[in-house]
Design a protein around this nucleic acid. Sequence first.
DNA 1: GTGCTTGCAAATCGTTTGCAATAGC
DNA 2: GCTATTGCAAACGATTTGCAAGCAC
Lengths: 135, 135
Amino acid sequence: MNSYDILISHDIKPSVQRLAILEYLYAYPTHPTADEIYNALSPSIPTLSKTTVYNTLKLFTLNKVAQAITIDEHTEHFDGDTSVHAHFLCKKCGKIYDATIKGETIPGEDKFKDEGHIINEAYLYYKGICKDCQK
Amino acid sequence: MNSYDILISHDIKPSVQRLAILEYLYAYPTHPTADEIYNALSPSIPTLSKTTVYNTLKLFTLNKVAQAITIDEHTEHFDGDTSVHAHFLCKKCGKIYDATIKGETIPGEDKFKDEGHIINEAYLYYKGICKDCQK
DNA sequence: GTGCTTGCAAATCGTTTGCAATAGC
DNA sequence: GCTATTGCAAACGATTTGCAAGCAC
């Protein structure tokens, strides 16, 4: 399914800006920030404003086209993969790595459900020093 | 062990402000923000400044006396319990609930370790609607 | 032409920084 | 007295808001 149809299927009206941002998220699954996306797309869409990038990412997040990663305390990162998966942040280089969760249960989930809470989102964050930064 | 000894054992020089903040974290394990702590302690310590609260919480976090909870995208919350445990944020009332993890493995951890990354911190966040807000 | 989208500029707000005053051994 | 801590005011920076202009059906 292409970006255009993905937006349609999530009830989002496609536009040049929205398509470009979504395609960027798929092309560069490095969990970019709003700023990084803006800087990357700005040359090809000179009239693009940062406000639009923020608006679009918020829209994507609300409509489950992307998810916001708040592993970094200073900036929000975005991920075009909306599945529940673990993220590892290297505190030295700032890079974020992924790990899929294949059918594993996440600790605490059952306890919260048993208590009567409704869970809509789950996030798993690890922090440390990545392989490359240990050299 | 009292607050004074806890600071000593973590190589932090006790002071009126530091003791008050640590005791607040223990007395009110509701994951307060720097602002909430400042507002709560300000009446009893009129000269207290918000800078000191921020400085102290950062010091506590670095020395593992407290942990920073970044589940809320707008503000940092703090927890006097430094063990790895799950947090649930109610998107309606903003309350944060705890769940302990008793010996359970956290998905993704092994994969990151296998890849050669060194994990120092782990966070588990859930978001949804809490029991009270469903009524 | 109506309603949604865009984008500039200004505002917001949690947090950090510079630096002088203060406190504690 | 020397060093670490405190706290005010100003700076900072990511994100949001107000609003006017533009676009699409």
